[in-house]
């Protein structure tokens, strides 16, 4: 019981929540601007985790630097997929529902390809590594350095992106696209450029977050999917295109998970996450976007 009231658990929840918020931010950008349901999002987290692992193991590069490389790698993957596969889809005349449904199957295929390419390259066995593992004491709470870094990076980056979307010209275009897809084209926004940027940024954020996750969690080619699910939960709770709401929702999910696990057992973590996911979708059957029913 004491542990429930200690600051330790609260800080742990905040750290997980801030990571979830950042991971979801990337998905929110991509879904919001293009209505692409990227269920391979978690696999970019995985790519980021491996990047951090190899850079540290082979060249002793600190995760703080490695995460930039991971972001770049994931961003490049995003650019390749956007220009190779999705640009033409989005420019076509298909109804948006069709693109949504197709994107899901396409990303499902991409996810399987990414996972198995990774397994082929690095085997399927799980890996861990020890970096930034000195304990820092703040008051009565002691935290591994890596987690503190994760908290700082995730909060800082999320805040920076929220500010970027609010105040920069490109950021405003992205928000316009999220809110009024068709109207954006009419008012002269370069939709293609904004889409490409959002796609790459969304991927890069997932990769970057992946390095931070990989420092503290087991890394394997198949680690990604729960993060995709988490990101969906966060977006549904926080609201489509509402990035600040998403960060708050990430925190809520972090709290639910941390305290849920503390009250029961670590084995139930997945049950808890998927359970919340199912509950959220069943309670909001219209999904991420509360469409007005027109008849």
């Amino acid at each position: 019981m004491e542990i429930l009231l200690s600051g330790q658990l609260l800080v742990a929840a905040l750290i997980i929540g801030s990571i979830y918020g950042l991971v979801a931010l990337g998905l929110n950008l991509i879904y919001g601007t293009m209505r692409l349901l990227n269920i391979a999002h978690g696999d970019l987290v995985m790519i980021g985790a491996y990047t951090g692992y190899w850079l540290f193991t082979l060249a002793a590069v600190s995760p703080v630097l490695a995460m930039l490389a991971a972001g770049a790698l994931a961003g490049l993957t995003g650019a390749a997929l956007y220009f190779g596969l999705f640009r033409r889809q989005l420019a076509g005349s298909q109804p948006i529902e069709r693109i949504e449904a197709n994107s899901l199957l396409i990303f499902f295929g991409i996810s399987i390809v990414i996972q198995n390419l990774t397994a082929l390259a690095f085997t399927a066995s799980p890996r861990t590594y020890q970096a930034l593992d000195t304990l820092v004491r703040i008051g009565e709470v002691s935290i591994a350095q890596s987690r503190l870094v994760a908290l700082a990076v995730c909060l800082g980056l999320s805040a920076a992106i929220v500010l970027f979307l609010r105040f920069s010209a490109l950021g405003l275009s992205i928000r316009a696209l999220i809110q009024h897809r068709t109207a954006s084209r009419i008012v002269g926004i370069d939709v293609d450029r904004v889409q490409a940027f959002s796609f790459v940024l969304g991927f890069a954020l997932a990769g970057l977050a992946g390095t931070l996750i990989g420092v503290t969690e087991q890394i394997s080619p198949f680690m990604g999917f729960p993060f995709t699910i988490v990101a969906f939960v966060v977006i549904i709770l926080g609201g489509l295109g509402n990035l600040a709401g998403g960060i708050a929702a990430g925190m809520v999910l972090g709290l639910i998970e941390t305290y849920g696990v503390a009250l029961t057992s670590a084995n139930l973590r997945s049950v808890l996450i998927y359970g919340v996911f199912i509950l959220v979708l069943v309670l909001r059957p219209e999904g991420l976007l509360q469409r007005r029913r027109l008849t």
């Binding site: 349901l37 529902e97 949504e100 997945s270 996911f277 199912i278 059957p285 219209e286 999904g287």
Partner: peptide, 19 residues
């Protein structure tokens, strides 16, 4: 649950049952 949300929900449901 409609369309794409049904699709991801089914995946989540299967994973939930698994765990």
């Amino acid at each position: 649950v409609r369309g794409p949300y049904f699709v991801i929900l089914t995946f989540g449901l299967a994973e939930f049952a698994k765990y």
